[in-house]
Amino acid sequence: MMILGKLLLGVIGLALATFIGGFISGLDRKITARMQSRFGPPLAQPFYDVLKLWGKAPMAVNAWLVLCAYLTLMASALSVFLFFAQSDLLLIFFVMTIGAVFQVMGALSVNSPFSHVGAQRELLQMFTYEPLIILVIIGIAMHTGSFSIASIYALDTPLLYSMPFLYVALGIAFTIKLRKSPFDISASHHGHQEIVRGVLTEYTGRQLAMLEVAHWLDVVLLLGLCSLFWSTSAIGLFLLLAVTYFAELFVDNVSARLTWGWMIKRALGPGVALAMVNLLWLYAIK
């Protein structure tokens, strides 16, 4: 009965996450536009984009690319499903990673140099954000004694009180995953960069639509991870997420795109250092 309930929760969560992800993406574009003193697109714009891309004539370069797009979407969906089914955090993390890896593999399977450079940069980004997320998960495990999400909901004080530095590290990882400035290195929303849309260049039509949905799901998953830091009250959770996302938008709009060298030196290093300090602190108070 317990398992059935969890499965049901996972399915409902996944369906909801898709809509929330698209909505967040629309809100993101609207607020970004307003920050740039523009009117901005309608809130439902990401849905229109995805529907349109779904209806485009197929133009895939090879079968591997199509397969990779499906696998990326499935991995992202599965990780969100597992999150809402309150599964193991480590498992969720690995499933999420599989999605990112397949996206890169698809980009590497074609012959375009833009796609290749984008894929290499995406791998470097993964190299940066994955240790940070893993350290956050370790921190949570150290605090609660278990990798399960249910154990976090059992806490009576928010995680943020004991893990503020880890939250900052998670914020860095979140910015990279969102593909926002200064970390829109492998791909960017508008494609105004030297490698066009980088890792996404060769995905077209339906495949691009799937990757877009996968991206929404990844964003929801990472917001979910952030939400664990204030699991005690719904209002606090919502406020934390709103502040976090607004901070992301703010950083996106006040900074230029930087290079992967800087990302590894100035994002991974301090991120890991912050996380380590927090982990030591957690170890000390135990």
Binding site: R38, P41, M59, H192, T204, L208
Partner: peptide
């Protein structure tokens, strides 16, 4: 601001 009509300059003919 043509983004109000959902227009984005994607720079990639495939998209």
């Amino acid at each position: 601001d043509v983004e109000r009509f959902g227009i984005i300059n994607v720079g990639n003919p495939k998209h």
